[in-house]
Simulated scan of single mutants.
Amino acid sequence: MPLRQRPRATPSRDPGRTWRTDDRVLTALVLVLIVLITAVDILSPPHIHLGPLLIVAPALTASFAGARGTAAVALLAIAALTFIGLARDGLTTANHQTQLGAQAVVSTLIVGLRVLRDRHERELARVRTVSEAAQRVLLRPLPERIGPLRLASVYLAAEAEAQVGGDLYAAARTATGTRLLVGDVRGKGLSSLGDAALLLGAFRAAAHLHAELPDLAAYLDGSVSWDLAQLAEQKRIAKGEVGEEAGESFITAVLLDIPDDGTEVRLVDCGHPPPLLLRPDGVTALAARRPSPPLGLGELAPARYEVETFPFGPGDRLLIYTDGVIEARDAQRRFYPLTERVAAWCGEQPGTLLRRLRGDLLEHVGGHLDDDAAMVVVDRLDRLPGGGPPGSRRRA
Rank of each mutant, 00 (worst) to 15 (best):
E244C: 12
E245D: 15
E245I: 14
E245G: 15
G247P: 15
G247A: 05
G247I: 06
S249W: 04
S249M: 13
F250A: 06
I251S: 01
I251F: 03
T252H: 01
A253V: 04
A253G: 08
V254S: 02
V254G: 04
V254F: 06
L255T: 03
L255Y: 00
L255Q: 01
L256V: 06
L256T: 09
D257C: 05
D257R: 00
D257H: 10
D257Q: 04
I258L: 12
I258P: 00
I258C: 01
I258M: 04
P259D: 07
P259A: 09
P259F: 07
P259E: 05
D260T: 13
D260W: 01
D260A: 10
G262S: 10
T263N: 10
E264I: 13
E264W: 11
V265P: 03
V265D: 00
V265T: 03
R266Y: 07
R266V: 01
R266T: 04
L267K: 05
V268A: 03
V268N: 00
V268K: 01
D269W: 11
D269P: 03
D269S: 12
C270W: 00
G271T: 13
G271V: 09
G271P: 12
H272V: 09
H272P: 03
H272L: 06
H272F: 05
P273L: 11
P273M: 10
P273S: 10
P274F: 03
P275H: 06
P275M: 07
P275V: 07
L276Q: 02
L276S: 03
L277Y: 09
L277A: 14
L277D: 12
L278V: 11
L278R: 14
R279M: 12
P280W: 02
P280Q: 05
D281Q: 13
D281F: 07
D281P: 11
G282L: 07
V283P: 06
T284C: 08
A285N: 09
A285Y: 10
A285T: 13
A285F: 06
A285W: 12
A287H: 09
A287L: 11
A287C: 12
A287S: 14
A288D: 06
A288N: 07
A288R: 07
R289S: 14
R289A: 13
R290G: 08
P291I: 03
P291F: 02
S292T: 10
S292R: 05
P294N: 02
P294F: 04
P294M: 04
L295Q: 07
G296D: 04
G296V: 02
G296N: 02
L297N: 06
L297V: 15
L297T: 08
L297G: 05
G298V: 08
E299C: 05
E299A: 15
L300P: 11
L300K: 09
A301N: 07
A301W: 10
A301T: 11
A301R: 04
A301K: 01
A301M: 13
A303I: 12
R304A: 13
Y305M: 02
Y305G: 00
E306S: 13
E306G: 11
V307G: 07
E308S: 13
E308R: 01
E308P: 12
T309V: 14
T309N: 07
T309H: 04
F310M: 09
F310N: 08
F310K: 03
F312S: 00
F312A: 03
G313C: 10
G313P: 02
P314A: 15
P314H: 10
